[in-house]
């Protein structure tokens, strides 16, 4: 009798143990799937941004000649933009260069940009890549060109708001090339992820490079960790 009772107990206990494990098993699967779905939703809903405040709302042409800017906690008066003067003294890089495929390379290791038309180098100058946010490494195409726009982002002391950012060419989300009027520290990282250039250089590149047109993609852009002497673009962990 006592033996039978003990056997029943043991059987009962075994059943409980299997149920317990099954519950834990299914609960784990459920939790894992839930975390995966929620996480996926969370990360996908967060856009990849260079300028956290304007990256989804202000990717458009804008000129505000009366606004002031803020950078590094200091007020800045942006340069006024008069579109009527744009076509005077218009210089186009590579105008005398035999036609060939255009390609822009950014070498993050020496903070230098190179523009090529075919095998002819038509621009080489210093830039400022991401300091407070990384400049994405990879191969892209210019997806839009804006003569001027507003960029804003950052928090606290790092907050910035910059109207009239000139000669903007986005190549990956809101990461792009543009002129920078608020600093002059090219050759050193200084941006939130974009590729800052002197205004004169940004203008020349803007007038030379192509945006998308019909089925044609914009000028190819390769952002490299380093560019070897034989032209090999070294990319570690490219975003695409």
């Amino acid at each position: 009798m006592a033996k039978k009772s003990h056997r029943q107990k043991t059987n009962k206990s075994r059943k409980k143990t299997i149920g317990y494990h099954l519950r834990v098993y299914f609960l784990s699967i459920f939790a894992g799937v839930a975390v995966f779905i929620a996480g996926n939703y969370f990360f996908n809903s967060q856009p990849i941004c260079a300028n956290s405040k304007t990256c989804t709302t202000d990717l458009s042409f804008s000129i505000d000649n009366d606004a002031t800017g803020i950078f590094q906690g200091r007020t800045i008066i942006p340069p006024k933009i008069n579109l009527a003067l744009d076509n005077s003294n218009l210089s186009i890089l590579g105008a005398d260069t035999p036609s060939g495929e255009k390609h822009i390379y950014v070498d993050l290791s020496n903070q230098t940009i190179y523009a090529f038309q075919g095998k002819t180098q038509i621009m080489k100058t210093l830039i400022s890549s991401g300091k407070w946010g990384k400049t994405p490494v990879g191969n892209f195409n210019i997806w839009t060109k804006l003569r001027s726009t507003r960029m804003a982002g950052g928090v606290g002391a790092d907050a910035y708001s910059l109207p009239n950012v000139p000669y903007v060419m986005y190549f990956f989300h809101d990461f792009g090339f543009h002129g920078a009027y608020w600093h002059n520290n090219f050759g050193h990282p200084m941006s939130h992820g974009c590729v800052n250039m002197r205004i004169v250089d940004a203008r020349d590149l803007f007038n030379w490079a192509d945006g998308p047109s019909g089925s044609q993609k914009g000028t190819p852009v390769s952002v490299c960790n380093s560019l070897t002497e034989d032209g090999n673009c070294v990319q570690k962990n490219p975003v695409n």
Binding site: Q72, R74, I76, N184, N185, G187, H188
Partner: peptide, 11 residues
């Protein structure tokens, strides 16, 4: 001295 951090600041 690398350059200018703003209108009056040299880095």
């Amino acid at each position: 001295a690398t350059g200018w951090g703003s209108e009056t600041l040299i880095i």
